[in-house]
Design a protein around this nucleic acid. Structure first.
Length: 476
RNA sequence: GGCCCCAUCGUCUAAUGGUCAGGACAUCACUCUUUCAAGGUGAAGAUACGGGUUCGAUUCCCGUUGGGGCUACCA
């Protein structure tokens, strides 16, 4: 048996949780589950400017919505500052790090200059070996130093579980800051301390961190710590082929939830974005994902998020969902959206009849809701194109037919879809017209739409009273 | 600019040193049908380019091109 698997997701709480983070979380979660390992959540809130507790909560809530649960945490880096401080001191002592009094302004100017000359900027180590009197002078001026890591000569290689061997020359890395002048550690430093202290065995994270990995390994070596296994996941790109960011607002988990996507479908879709079980499988349950998931089958190349396919997959889940579950997720979605149905139409009984007919032809819960509208709201809006097509060619005739049909419905001793269809068929026969010629106008008259469940189901759902009312108040 | 990563239909992907390069979404057509959706059938659609290695490369190697990431006292 392999050694204890401990993985983590380490998001920075600086905004909405987007699908990239969700996918990383999912892969970590699947990996942990399939190895009987532990999944840790650590909030990397060392950027005090941008981090918010609100965002941290959104991340936790978003993952919870997807059913991605963690075994440990959340840990907050902002609450572990003394730990980093202690370890930074250790590196200062051992000569692996040094204090730097350079002002951000000066560094920025240097960087600009180098850029203008199309030179690669690297910190010039001005503060390495700073004479004691100069140091004293800076201190006297009240300048708080940052702490930089002294990058040694040479090169570093590591084996990425997905990409294989990766090598980087140290000369391409400058002496990066590990502790800011305000005493708060930077990402590359805190991540190493925590991954070590939390005994993380496998670091599965997005490929954007692949070049940070060298810096981190340098840190592990300076401490003499064991290096975890690394696996860098391909990125999920927006439709503009760029890394997901605030610009891609609609890519946040909350947004997908609002649009009526189902957690199961999201998980299924995300799992397949960058990983494949091999073969032709598309619809895969959580349980199967846990069983099938393996690092070896993660792809190397970035993927573009395909909304169309997600919508299709969501529809698949919606369609195959059993009634109690459908009822549950729809009502939950209504609560999430803070939508309240009129009391007489919010009963389980009524929804149980109408929802299956609607869900069958919807792809999202938002679509379900939209299609439900004619049944729960008497303020109809009529489809203009439909009116043109089915009403306005011969309004007088259509109107006459509908009123005739209305009369027959009114006289029915029992009103249901069979009897409603029966009298319509009779009427059609008598009038010598095609069934479609009256079915379509009736649908529009009673639902406002050209599309929907089979007409006689609609009539039964609406009930005689509303049908008669709507057949009287014709739209033209 | 420098460094790193990547490269199969429009998109997600399968495959392998020898396949008619397979599937899914999307698209189009037909079919089913009172509409829509779903279903069924079919069509179109890819190994970026150039060199090697090899009897044979989509697959292995090199280069080019393209894309992406990093290059912060962001993560």
């Amino acid at each position: 048996m392999d050694k204890k698997v401990r993985v983590r997701i380490a998001p920075s709480p600086t905004g909405a949780i987007h699908v990239g983070l969700a996918r990383s979380a999912l892969y970590n979660y699947l990996f942990a589950c399939s190895h009987g390992g532990t999944f840790v959540l650590r909030i990397e809130d060392t950027d005090v400017q941008r981090s918010t507790e609100e965002s941290a909560q959104a991340i936790i809530k978003g993952l919870g919505w997807l059913g991605i649960t963690f075994d440990e945490g959340p840990y907050y880096q902002s609450q572990r500052l003394d730990i980093y401080r202690k370890h930074a001191d250790q590196l200062l002592q051992s000569g692996h790090a040094y204090r730097c009094y350079c002002t951000p302004e000066r560094l920025e100017a240097e960087r600009k200059k180098a850029d203008a000359q199309r030179r690669a900027w690297r910190y010039d180590r001005r503060c390495l070996n700073l004479p004691e009197e100069e140091r004293k002078k800076f201190e006297a001026e009240g300048i708080k130093p940052a702490i930089r890591f002294l990058v040694p000569e040479g090169s570093t290689s590591f084996t990425d579980l997905i990409h294989g061997s990766i090598t980087r020359e140290h000369k391409d890395i400058d002496d990066f800051v590990i502790v800011r002048s305000n005493g708060i550690p930077t990402y590359n430093f805190a991540v190493v301390a925590d991954d070590h202290l939390m005994e993380i065995s496998h670091v599965l994270r997005a490929v954007e961190h692949i070049s940070n990995t060298t810096k981190q390994i340098l840190l592990y070596n300076a401490f003499g710590w064991e290096i975890p296994a690394f696996a860098h996941l391909p990125l999920i790109l927006g439709e503009d082929r760029k890394k997901l960011s605030k610009r891609h607002g609609a890519m946040s988990l909350a947004e997908f939830r609002r649009m009526g996507y189902l957690p199961d479908a999201m998980v299924n879709f995300l799992a397949l974005l960058g990983w494949s079980p091999g073969g032709d499988r598309e619809i895969i349950s959580r349980q199967e994902l846990v069983k099938l998931f393996s690092l070896e089958r993660i792809n190397t190349s970035n993927a573009i998020f395909d909304m169309q396919k997600l919508a299709w997959m969501n529809g698949e889940y919606l369609r195959t969902m059993d009634l109690p579950k459908l009822l549950e997720v729809f009502q939950e979605w209504l609560r999430f959206q803070e939508i309240e149905l009129p009391a007489q139409y919010s009963s389980k009984d009524f929804l149980s009849k109408v929802l299956p007919l609607i869900a069958e032809r919807s792809r999202t819960l938002a679509e379900v809701y939209d299609a439900l509208l004619p049944y729960v709201c008497d303020d109809l809006t009529y489809d203009e194109e439909g009116l043109n097509k089915h009403f306005r060619k011969d309004p007088a005739a259509v109107k006459r037919w509908l009123l005739l049909y209305r009369e027959r419905l009114e006289k029915l001793h029992e009103f249901n879809k069979e009897t409603a269809e029966g009298v319509l068929r009779e009427l059609v026969e008598e009038l010598g017209i095609k069934a479609g010629e009256i079915i379509h106008p009736v649908r529009i008259a009673v639902t406002g739409r050209t599309v929907g469940p089979p007409l006689f189901d609609c009539l039964e759902l609406l009930g005689r009273e509303r049908v008669l009312e709507r057949l009287k108040n014709l739209p033209v």
